[in-house]
């Protein structure tokens, strides 16, 4: 399996080798997939994958930290493109906002703060530790090792995964989420004029709407009291079946939010604790500096006071 990567010095050659090898693997996979399935390959995937991998290669090879961070932003953006292809719109935009917008900007700030200010005569001098890689051969060996191991595991594992037919048969219909969104479905139906203001969708057990995502139909009934609990107040015998409009679909954000809040509520708690700990840690780490500043301020104030007294004398 041609899986090379490169590091530093014969830079251009290394980059070319890496690009050719990575490209060959991807194209080989594409050709094989085409043999299996037929049809055109998804060009966007190849474009985004190439940009992502090329930019991450530059991240680890570029000598200037600022450029490395900028290339990492490029990596993030093209990964967001990959997320979009994978129908994860929310995560794509969250990635751009959080990663490219917040985390990477913080990195840039720190890079600019923590660089020795160049003196006038040596404007373009790079730090020695940026120019020289550490243990390139050993690191490349380790990288190869983990690349090979992960590839073998992934590809042998992936070939044992169930086929798409089985997964489609087991997975719930993409629109089944609509059964859990009464307000939205009813609002859309009312806007479309399909149900009157006094009609609601019949609830099944536990508040689930009686809505068939595959046939795209729903059963609606008139309620006695619009303001009251509609589940209790349906008029018997007033049920009728209506077809759902085509544009009423479960969106990625809704499905993701449902999955996140309903199936993994503990995740939010843990994430909150992690963020709190990070905040506390950052505060503790930077507190010493504030003390020093206070000390300096007091010294300055005392000195000013003394100067003022001397001037008065």
């Amino acid at each position: 399996m041609a899986l090379p990567r490169k590091r530093v010095n014969p830079q251009i050659i290394g980059g070319l080798v890496a690009a050719i090898a990575g490209g060959l693997v991807l194209i080989g996979l594409g050709i094989r997939a085409r043999e299996v399935e037929g049809g055109l390959p998804n060009l966007y995937f190849y474009v985004f994958a190439a940009i992502a991998l090329g930019a991450s290669l530059r991240v680890i090879t570029h000598q200037r930290p600022v450029y490395a961070a900028l290339y990492f932003i490029l990596t993030i953006l093209s990964s967001a493109g990959l997320y979009l292809i994978l129908a994860a719109e929310f995560m794509a935009f969250a990635l751009i906002i959080i990663y490219a917008g917040a985390i990477l900007i913080t990195y840039l700030f720190v890079i600019m703060m923590a660089t020795q200010s160049p003196s006038e005569e040596e404007v373009d001098v790079l730090a020695e530790y940026d120019l020289q890689a550490r243990e390139p051969l050993a690191a490349v060996f380790a990288g190869f090792l983990i690349l090979g191991a992960l590839s073998v595991m992934i590809f042998t594992g992936a070939s044992k995964l169930p086929g798409s037919e089985e997964i489609r048969a087991q997975a719930p219909h993409p629109d089944h989420m609509l059964q859990l969104l009464p307000r939205r479905v009813e609002r859309v139906l009312q806007d479309e004029g399909l149900i009157s203001g006094r009609e609601r969708i019949v609830r099944e057990a536990r508040g689930v709407l009686s809505l068939d995502p595959e046939a795209r139909t729903a059963i609606v009934a008139r309620t006695v009291d619009v303001d009251g609990d509609p589940a209790g107040g349906f008029i018997p015998g007033s049920e009728r079946e209506i077809a759902l409009p085509d544009h009423l679909r479960a969106r990625n954000v809704e499905s993701l939010a449902y999955d996140f809040l309903n199936r993994h509520p503990m995740t939010i708690e843990i994430a909150g604790v992690i963020l709190l700990m990070a905040m506390l840690g950052a505060v503790v780490l930077s507190r010493r500096q504030v003390d020093i500043d206070d000390e300096r301020k007091r010294q300055q104030a005392e000195r000013r006071l003394r100067d003022a007294e001397e001037a008065r004398l």
Partner: peptide
Amino acid sequence: FPEAMGSVTLAHYLFVSVAMFAM
């Protein structure tokens, strides 16, 4: 071989992920 994502398969994405991780 899994084909749930059209002619770009799961293995493509996993390869991109593995290569990026190794880098």
